[in-house]
Design a protein around this nucleic acid. Structure first.
Length: 247
DNA sequence: AGTATTTGACCGGA
DNA sequence: TCCGGTCAAATACT
């Protein structure tokens, strides 16, 4: 086990280094998309190896241009929730917030002290399969491109099971594609929602296809998408604060 | 026609 | 009483 842990640490370390470099390049030099893609591919491979080394993999994995995992307890969320921060690379990249699972928006609330409303989602299969998973998405006040995503409950639907299995076998791309049939594309979905230029609401999270999707300045989809990939979609910058799975 | 989203109302907890 | 979370009817979209 120690061997695996050490290797995993090395991989993740390299991942972080590459991610940072990638971020700098993309942010600072838009004239180097090629290099960015190259790094992105390496990043994907590295993360994929790390994921496999991690065995079953943590639920609440991530896939995005930059992955950052910390164990900070940042206030107030009750156990049983998985909290993640997802950064999109651009306003056109909102589809990146997809996590490979199908969610249905059931509410939206203005939160006291928050400049942006919070959106509430539940599993599409809640009624048909009794899946109790829900998630809340709220845009960070400080960073308009940063979304706080909080997952509640465990996915018990067939789709989630398939995604979990896919951790070892294949990315949940197939799932996303299935959903594509009844849901519009990520970009379209994002546009379709009420997203005013300034204070817009969190996006709905339609399933999106995996793959290296770089319409503008978005990041690459990583190869390994964890079962409960919180915002594991394209171009997402994940920042997991807490991982509680004692449900 | 079926499904998803929007939005105001309702309910429970602090 | 206030606030966060959910419900459900109306509406929009495919």
């Amino acid at each position: 086990m120690e061997d695996t842990t050490a290797t995993l640490a090395t991989e993740l370390d390299g991942l972080l280094a590459m991610a940072r470099e990638l971020e700098e390049r993309v942010d600072g030099d838009q004239g180097a998309p090629g290099a960015a893609r190259e790094l992105c591919a390496e990043l994907a491979a590295s993360v994929d190896r790390a994921v496999r080394l991690a065995g079953s993999g943590p639920r609440g994995g991530n896939a995005g241009g930059r992955a950052r995992v910390n164990g900070q307890h940042r206030g107030g969320r009750k156990a049983g929730a998985v909290r993640a921060q997802v950064r999109v690379a651009s306003m056109q990249d909102l589809g990146s917030l997809d996590d490979g699972l199908s969610w249905r928006k059931y509410g939206q609330k203005d939160i006291l002290g928050a400049p942006y409303p919070r959106a509430y989602f539940r599993c599409t299969h809640r009624h048909s399969q009794g899946c109790q998973a829900t998630k809340q998405v709220q845009r960070a006040a400080a960073d308009p491109l940063l979304f706080d995503v909080v997952y509640h409950g465990a996915h018990t639907c067939a789709q989630a099971t398939a995604v979990l299995v896919g951790t070892d076998q294949q990315p949940p791309a197939s799932l996303g594609q299935e959903q594509q049939q009844q849901q519009s594309s990520p970009a379209e979905a994002s546009e379709g929602m009420q997203w005013p230029a300034e204070p817009f609401t969190p996006p709905s999270f339609p399933s999106s296809p995996a793959g290296c999707y770089t319409p503008g300045n978005s990041w690459c989809q990583l190869a390994g998408n964890y079962g409960y990939a919180a915002g594991g979609g394209l171009g997402a910058d994940m920042d997991f604060d807490e991982l509680f799975w004692n449900m």
